[in-house]
Amino acid sequence: MEIRLIATQIGDRLKYDTSVNEINRVGQSILKVRKESFANDSITSVRAQEVYNWIMTLGKTSLTKEERNKRLVKFCMELAPDEQKGSISEFLIANGCDYNAVNKDHLNEFYSRNYHPEIIRHSKKLFLQQNYFHSVFESAKAFNYSVKQKAQSDKDGQDLMMSAFSLNGVLKLNFGMTETERNVQDGVKFLSGGLMRAVRNPTAHEPALDWPINKQECLDFLSMISFLFHQLDKSIYYNG
């Protein structure tokens, strides 16, 4: 693992997105080492130097490779804003950090939900990067697109869901002959419309910092969208 390069580059990438106090707080709580100082004439930012010192200290501490990787990834991901998590994780992997091994438990938690294949396709990578906001957003967008295609509709978002899954809509979940069947149809309509109103619309218009989504919320949101994808799979297009 190219620890010196990682220490220099991570510090440079994060110097505008955090504070010295935050760097030291995260370093103490996650890296669990006694920080030392390391001279580097190419670093001119105090915050970049602090990140460099923490990572270099971790690099010289006697730990197993797996434990060092685990602490390094958690440190970097905790400091990184959502829009940088993806590029930083790719950088760590490219420079010898076994990111997938570190995130083994994270991945198991994701797969334990038995998500619809579309959720896995659109959200797994973002979830592993701890980019929970965009993991949910991409799955909500994918569901909207799939409904739009199957309903052959020009509508979008909440209007699309309320139209396509209505009792008079083109996506039929059942025959609609009994009160129970009609309630099921209405239920999926309102859940789908609610998803668009509660998730897709806010995430499309709000910065991630203004509406943070934690891991548990992300898993729960994805479970809801997965359920709706399965309902969409069962639906029949009928424009009678």
Rank of each mutant, 00 (worst) to 15 (best):
G11H: 00
E90P: 07
I236A: 05
E206F: 07
D41F: 09
A142R: 09
K141G: 06
A94E: 04
N21M: 10
A48S: 05
S37M: 14
N24E: 03
E36Q: 13
D82A: 00
D12N: 08
G96C: 11
E90Y: 04
H106R: 13
S45A: 02
H230L: 05
E179V: 09
V26E: 01
M1Q: 06
S226W: 05
H230I: 05
Y52M: 03
G187Q: 06
G86W: 00
S123A: 15
Q158H: 13
G169T: 11
V46C: 10
G157K: 13
D156A: 09
L173Y: 06
L173V: 03
R34T: 07
A204D: 07
S153Q: 15
S112C: 08
I55F: 03
A151Q: 02
A94R: 02
E206T: 08
K70L: 12
N174F: 12
S37T: 13
G193A: 10
R71Y: 02
Y238P: 04
S226H: 03
D154E: 14
I120S: 10
A142V: 07
I23V: 15
P212R: 15
N168G: 13
L232K: 05
T18I: 12
V73H: 07
N183C: 07
D17K: 05
G169F: 08
C76R: 00
L191S: 03
V51P: 00
N69Q: 13
T203E: 08
V33T: 08
N24R: 01
V102A: 03
T178A: 09
D233L: 02
L126C: 01
S112N: 06
R34M: 07
N131C: 11
K35V: 10
S62N: 14
G176P: 05
H116E: 07
K172F: 04
M77D: 04
R197A: 12
G240P: 04
F127L: 09
R71L: 11
E217F: 10
G27M: 02
H122V: 10
S226T: 04
T18W: 09
E50W: 07
S146E: 10
E66H: 15
S89Y: 15
N183L: 12
Y111P: 09
E217D: 14
E67A: 15
I119P: 03
H205W: 04
E36P: 05
L171P: 01
D186M: 14
S42T: 09
I30T: 08
Q49Y: 02
L14H: 02
M196L: 07
S89E: 11
L63W: 00
K15S: 03
F38V: 12
Y99R: 06
I55H: 01
E90W: 01
L160R: 01
E181F: 10
H122W: 10
D17A: 03
K234D: 04
F143M: 15
G240V: 01
T203I: 06
E83Q: 06
F127E: 00
W211Y: 14
T44W: 01
G176T: 04
N131Q: 13
R13P: 00
K125R: 14
A48T: 00
Y115N: 08
L195D: 01
A7T: 04
F227I: 08
I6R: 00
F75M: 03
Q152T: 12
